[in-house]
């Protein structure tokens, strides 16, 4: 068995070309999903309404189907939708010219919104009812009570799960290449194909993902530590 170390080192640096794409996908999806996910969580916690049912169905679908399938569905569906929109609005643009990143953004955002709304929903449920009551009894409006007392506490509970969702998102983006997006996997595959150095290429990607995920976890742990100050009980 021969392990081509030279190729290994080379590919390492070329693979980094795909890194910005991965990071962009992750960051964008997260930024959109955090507020939207929270909104959906709140909608699901309120009483019956048609919107709530719609949201629940959407979340159930996202959680019940593999991300690969979601990718393929969106990748086959959106272009035709865009084509009809272009036709209807008489826009002279070829659907195939659209940057595939757009589809990636759509899929990963839709996915993350659903997952985060579940995280927020259970996080809000962990805060004792008495906290809100005390706020109301002190004269705060319900909104103020949520903003100043309930939500900060819910965030601390949510943080570990948000970390999990983020690392899962990063791992999911490894599938973006199916939509011809030039992420790390795509770059590595191209490099590998030149000299049939598949193993080295994929081990390179593997290591890169481990590094990224570990960094993300460390980051979250730090943030969690700072936010958890109020939870540290004095040991007498």
């Amino acid at each position: 068995m021969s392990f081509n170390f030279e190729f290994f080192y080379q590919t390492f640096f070329t693979a980094f070309r795909g890194l910005p794409v991965t990071l962009k996908l992750t960051a964008f999806s997260l930024l959109i999903s955090l507020p939207l996910g929270f909104l959906f969580a709140v909608i699901r916690l309120k009483e019956r309404s048609k919107v709530k049912n719609l949201v629940s169905v959407y979340i159930s679908f996202v959680r019940g189907t593999p991300i690969v399938v979601q990718i393929l569905v969106i990748y086959s569906l959106i272009p035709s939708i865009m084509a009809s929109i272009f036709k209807g609005l008489d826009i002279k643009m070829n659907v195939f010219d659209i940057n595939p990143m757009l589809y990636a953004y759509i899929v990963f955002s839709l996915n993350t919104v659903a997952l985060l709304s579940e995280v927020f929903r259970s996080a809000l449920a962990t805060v004792e009812k008495g906290q809100l009551e005390a706020a109301q009894a002190a004269g705060l409006t319900t909104f103020q009570g949520y903003r100043r007392i309930v939500i900060p506490q819910a965030m601390v509970a949510a943080l570990p799960n948000i970390c999990t969702v983020t690392t899962n998102l990063i791992k999911s983006t490894s599938l973006a290449f199916l939509m011809t997006v030039k992420d790390i996997t795509a770059v590595a595959k191209v490099e590998a194909a030149y000299g049939y150095n598949y193993i080295e290429a994929y081990i390179v990607i593997w290591i890169i993902y481990i590094i990224i995920c570990s960094l993300v976890e460390i980051l979250f742990k730090l943030v969690e530590k700072r936010m958890k100050v109020y939870k540290r009980a004095l040991v007498s």
Partner: peptide, 27 residues
């Protein structure tokens, strides 16, 4: 556990698919 939790399934699949035959052949 830590390593595998940070590994995308498709990456591990490729590593195993391309790597294992080589490993078996070599060893």
């Amino acid at each position: 556990t830590t390593i595998l939790r940070c590994t995308p399934s498709i990456v591990l699949l490729f590593v195993v698919y391309y790597g294992l035959p080589e490993l078996m052949m070599g060893l």
